[in-house]
Each structure stands twice: as C-alpha cells, then as structure tokens.
C-alpha cells in the first residue's frame, strides 16, 4: 500500500466516529519503488489529499521532505510535485500496523495489504 491510499483510510469500528483519522502507522517496513510521474494526476489530487494528515504521518516515519503547508503555487511547482510524487506514490508500506488514534483499534498490514476487516461485534 502506498501512502496515497493510507491518506484515504479511516477507522470504521462501530461508534468510533471522531478523531479516527489518520491511522497511526507503527512498526512499519517501508520500501521505495520508482514510478512514472503523472503531473496531471497529481494536480487533480491536490485538493483531495488530506495534506495536514499526510505531513504528520510522514514526520512520524522520518520523511521530512514535505513543506508543513502546501505551497500556494503547488499545481505548477515542479519541485513540490516531485516530492509529493515520491512520497505518496513511491513510498510503499510493506508491513506494520495502523492504530486508530481514537479507539486504538489495530489494523494489520501484511504483504503490503491492510486488513480492514472487523469482527462481527465491531461492525
């Protein structure tokens, strides 16, 4: 799973409705894999990314390249788009877990795939 996907997942345990995003990554193994950059796509994603959550998540992973706030000229800022591309589309979470900041539920990531299934009573 790439960080772009992590940026769109939240806890869905029954009754856990607030402060359930972003899920905190713990004990993760990361891998960088090169991918072709698609600027049109990145521009279209700019207003869809939860930027604050992305920066916070990255800092905890010791990825310090993103500016604290998105530049005003982000859409045409090549340097920024390249960093964003590397972070959200080339950074893969191979294993670890995602912990809900609210209810502490653990979602395990194995072989790069997050297990978002809940037990019957948690739905």
């Amino acid at each position: 799973m790439r960080l772009i996907t992590h940026n769109m997942l939240q806890c869905h345990v029954k009754g856990c409705n607030a402060n359930n995003f972003p899920l905190e990554l713990q004990e993760v193994v990361l891998e960088q894999e090169e991918a072709e950059m698609n600027e049109d796509f990145l521009r279209n994603m700019l207003n869809k990314i939860e930027y604050e959550a992305l920066v916070a998540t990255c800092l905890k992973l010791d990825i310090n390249d993103l500016p604290a706030t998105m530049p005003a000229d982000a859409a045409y800022n090549d340097e920024f788009l390249q960093i964003l591309h590397r972070v959200i589309l080339e950074t893969h979470i191979k294993s670890g877990k995602m912990v809900c900041p609210n209810c502490q539920h653990n979602y395990v990531i194995r072989d790069g795939i997050p297990n978002m299934l809940l037990a019957e009573h948690e739905v």
Partner: peptide
C-alpha cells in the same frame, strides 16, 4: 502498480 484493501 495497484493497492489493495482487504474489506467487506
């Protein structure tokens, strides 16, 4: 490149 989510 494709991400997967195990979910119901």
């Amino acid at each position: 490149e494709m991400d997967f989510i195990l979910t119901d």
